[in-house]
Design a protein around this nucleic acid. Structure first.
Lengths: 337, 337
DNA sequence: CTTAAAAATGTAATCGCTTCCACTCGCACA
DNA sequence: TGTGCGAGTGGAAGCGATTACATTTTTAAG
């Protein structure tokens, strides 16, 4: 049927062991022999069978991506997943690994059986919040694990995050640089860590500029359009003055936009607006939204790199926490005062 | 280290062979024995090692999802991927399979080596158009394959599609039912099959209602907001009358919306609008967009089901083409004339 | 109660690779 | 001329399941 290393061994006039050594880059093969074997491999386009290697080496060359339920349920921007997948697979396939996805939507048992026992070399957990029960179970099996887009303080899991505080900071600072002094803030669901971070970034920018934080201008909603609309209406009803607003994500910005319009206010003429996420529609609405973008692809590559390192070096690798900066994308929804 | 089938055999006082039979639901095990073995398996939370089974059964319990480049490059709605993944993994994990993703972005060789040789039991190809070169290569290796969201006429590959024509049909019919008689049509990139299907659906609805198709009202653009904006402006410039418009996707609808607004026209007061895709932002814009939704999750489950059938029964399964209906979601952008 | 067929179970070979251990073959050194 | 050593290679034992084939047990017909 298909080629085995035995065939390669015969063709190259060496033993199976040597072929195996060549495949695995063992240093103890004479250069000349190595070349001969490689040539045969090349010519026959031989590819070692993963299951056979896995059986006795323990390596499965397969890592799991566990997408937690909250990612799907919430207003997690849909365009994140493609970006992250792209980063993950690029890095992983370069090292010969595959990526298998698992959704948390199925019953817990399913995830347990499926995910943990399926001979994965490691797991990347993508979520907004840590599912602690699950994380504990995975760690109990000593499976290397990296948290992506969230972290868990009490457990020593490596994590890759973005610096949402810095994101809100640069977004707010952009408004300040444009001359705005009265800048409102629309917070997302306070249950999530990110909401807090973004508020802190907003406050930090104000403070750096010596601007007072005005509690009246700070509203709390959910990461959806309806709450943002309602809160903006409420804010306007207070009669408070503001010429700009930092909104915690792009979907909310849509709600803010509607509320402002309904009161006869225009963006950016009357109010400048900055969002977060750089959603697919951000360029397509009127006005195009100035927003803050997470380095989606890079988040994937970083997570993959860290996990592979952990797999290679074992527990000796210390817990690592990477925080990636976000980027301000200036479009038409902001303008100098 | 970890449990093997041997341990289970000892604990249950049977042979390895019997344990294996129980695991694989072989019918030739006495009910009583089966229960005893299952109990032990349950108690020890044993899980057979995939690589070991794969080695001699040929079954890898791993299927590949190949996401073609055009999916990422185009205005493919970002929210599709999560929906499709959800459907795929639900069905697959129920049958004990995992799903590994591969992106077409890497070099072709990578995909070739990686995808084809990595011991997958089958491949699902998600794309807007068939990458024929790749499809041929996969089929040459006799890997079962199902095309998702596209099809290829000349090759006998099974496929799962949505009925875009029916989608445009019900969208247009909705407008007709609301009393509209002059209905414009905004087409997407004519290079894609879907564009053609949507136009046909539009025309079909007009014909069914005995309405003439007016070429002046039909514009062709790309699946993005900028072209839609431009084409709408051009349409308005002709001075042609219309009270409604069918737009080939939601992103384009954003452009249409802007163009209409810029000319002082309001939606739905002056023009009713129907889109396609039910993008994440469709509920969040003003007015909320009436649109046509693809059954994302179901597309996934169907594709998985078909692929598994093909894997189980081999080539005996005839080529199958499933076409799923779309659904009209009525929101605020349409109203009776 | 036999006894042959059917059903259930066990034995052991096998899948394709990795890796431990043994072995060969120069070559430097005493 | 031995001797020791290290580099390179080969032989063969697994890894943990599946499965063809052999064997035992059960069932049912006579």
């Amino acid at each position: 049927m298909s080629l085995t290393i035995k065939d390669i061994a015969n063709l190259a006039n060496v033993s199976q062991a040597t072929v195996s050594r060549v495949i695995n880059n063992s240093p103890k093969v004479k250069q000349k022999t190595r070349e001969r074997v490689l040539k045969v491999i090349e010519d026959t386009s031989f590819f070692p069978k993963v299951s056979a290697r896995a059986l006795n080496s323990g390596r499965n060359y397969n890592i799991g991506l566990l997408i937690l339920y909250d990612v799907f349920k919430s207003q997690f921007p849909a365009e994140f997943l493609p970006g992250i997948l792209s980063g993950l697979t690029r890095e992983l396939s370069a090292q010969g690994y595959m990526l298998s996805v698992f959704l948390d939507q199925a019953a817990d048992k399913e995830v347990d059986d499926g995910l943990i026992n399926r001979n994965l070399d490691g797991v990347i957990v993508l979520g907004l919040e840590t599912n602690t029960r699950l994380a504990f179970r995975i760690s109990k099996r000593k499976l290397p694990i990296v948290l992506l887009n969230h972290r868990f303080q009490d457990l020593s899991f490596s994590s890759v995050m973005t610096d949402d505080q810095q994101g809100a900071f640069i977004g707010t600072r952009h408004l300040i640089e444009q001359g705005h002094r009265s800048i409102a803030f629309m917070e997302g669901n306070p249950r999530y860590y990110t909401s807090h971070a973004r508020r802190t970034g907003y406050l930090q920018a104000l403070e750096e500029a010596g601007l007072p934080a005005n509690p009246v201008l700070m509203r709390v909603g959910e990461y959806d359009e309806a709450h943002a609309y309602r809160e903006t209406k409420a804010l306007l009803a207070t009669g408070a003055d503001f010429t700009a607003m930092y909104v915690s994500n792009d979907i909310m910005a849509l709600g803010v936009l509607q509320a402002l319009r309904s009161e006869g206010l225009r963006v950016p003429e009357n109010v400048s607006l900055v969002g977060f996420d750089d959603a697919q529609f951000a360029t397509a609405i009127d006005p195009p939204l100035t927003t803050v973008r997470k380095p989606r692809s890079q988040m994937g590559t970083e997570a993959a790199r860290m996990l592979l390192e952990r797999i290679d070096r074992g527990d000796s690798v210390p817990e690592e926490h990477v925080v990636l900066p976000t980027k301000l994308i200036v479009r038409g929804s902001t303008r100098p005062l």
